[in-house]
């Protein structure tokens, strides 16, 4: 018996698990790896921020004698309008910005994705009810919606994530619904039903994997949008409260001194940009890796 089995297995192309396969394809993609490495560095910096700079003495302690100093050996990215070290504030601020960006996108992706998938798959009245609700959400400017939610719930980090997440749900719901609509009428969905698959299996195994490409692109762009929304909320005083550092708030505060001290706004801006760029590179790589047709 053993002999027969091993004979059966000869000549088979190497068996790999799906996720390992995807991992290998991401690693082979240079641009995606650049994105991944930058993102990893940013996350590590945020994780070990306390080791690099002490929060109480460096990040929020004002030193008005040294305000708006340019980059130097002591403060490698200079100091802000209260004489605080910008690099220290950026790595501490990264904790909040990255957390809000990633968590709120995951939240809106999961909720919006489920709503969109159900609306697209079941159609009819169900679709109408869900999508009209989404239209109402879309009709309200997302920043206004987020403001309303934060005002209602009170401003804390978690509430900020929820607010930004909720205001982005409609865009994910629309994207997922649109791709579900194009896929659900394909013959392989009918085939899945013909072999006895139930709705749950058809949605999870056959429809959603085929909608990943546009969703991943939207999600990576969405992280950037979420960081900026957080910044806007902080700017009007509903987000992260000063003196806590947050990239968007640092950017908007530094705006005032752009003529006299360029570095105050520029460096947080560069960090936001690099984060978004690396997420986009990684997202593109992931999208390609998830498509078996582009193998090798």
């Amino acid at each position: 018996m053993q002999g027969i089995t091993s004979e059966l297995h000869t000549g088979r192309a190497k068996k790999r698990s799906l996720w390992l396969d995807i991992g290998i394809r991401v690693i082979k993609n240079k641009a995606a790896m650049v994105g991944f490495v930058i993102l990893a560095v940013l996350i590590l910096l945020a994780l070990f921020a306390d080791v690099i700079a002490d929060y109480d003495t460096v990040v929020i302690q004002q030193d008005l004698a040294n305000m708006n100093q340019g980059p130097s050996l002591e403060h490698i990215l200079g100091t802000d309008e209260f004489g605080r070290d910008i690099f220290a504030r950026i790595i501490h601020g990264g904790r909040i910005s990255l957390a809000v960006g990633l968590v709120s996108v995951c939240f809106s992706l999961v909720v919006g994705g489920i709503l969109g998938a159900l609306a697209g798959y079941y159609g009819g009245r169900f679709d109408n009810i869900i999508m009209r609700c989404m239209d109402i959400f879309l009709a309200i400017p997302s920043i206004l919606l987020a403001m309303a939610i934060v005002t209602a719930l009170g401003s804390s980090l978690l509430n900020l994530m929820i607010a930004v997440g909720i205001s982005n749900i409609p865009s994910y719901a629309r994207i997922v619904r649109a791709s579900v609509l194009t896929i659900k009428d394909q013959e392989f969905i009918e085939a899945a039903r013909a072999i006895g698959g139930n709705d749950f299996r058809i949605i999870m195994r056959h429809i959603l994997p085929n909608t990943l490409a546009p969703v991943i692109v939207q999600a990576t762009l969405g992280v950037a949008g979420a960081i900026l929304s957080t910044a806007s909320l902080s700017f009007i005083g509903l987000g992260i409260q000063p003196p806590a550092p947050e990239w968007g708030a640092m950017l908007s505060n530094g705006r005032t001194y752009l003529r006299s001290a360029w570095h105050v706004a520029t460096f947080p801006g560069i960090f936001i940009m690099v984060t978004i760029l690396s997420l986009n590179l990684l997202g593109d790589g992931l999208r390609d890796a998830l498509d078996p047709k582009l193998k090798q």
């Binding site: 013959e187 392989f188 085939a191 013909a194 085929n210 078996p292």
Partner: peptide, 13 residues
């Protein structure tokens, strides 16, 4: 059932 179009009737993923 066996379908007509072997390109559309199997999940590409």
């Amino acid at each position: 059932i066996i379908f007509q179009d072997p390109y559309a009737s199997i999940n590409p993923r």
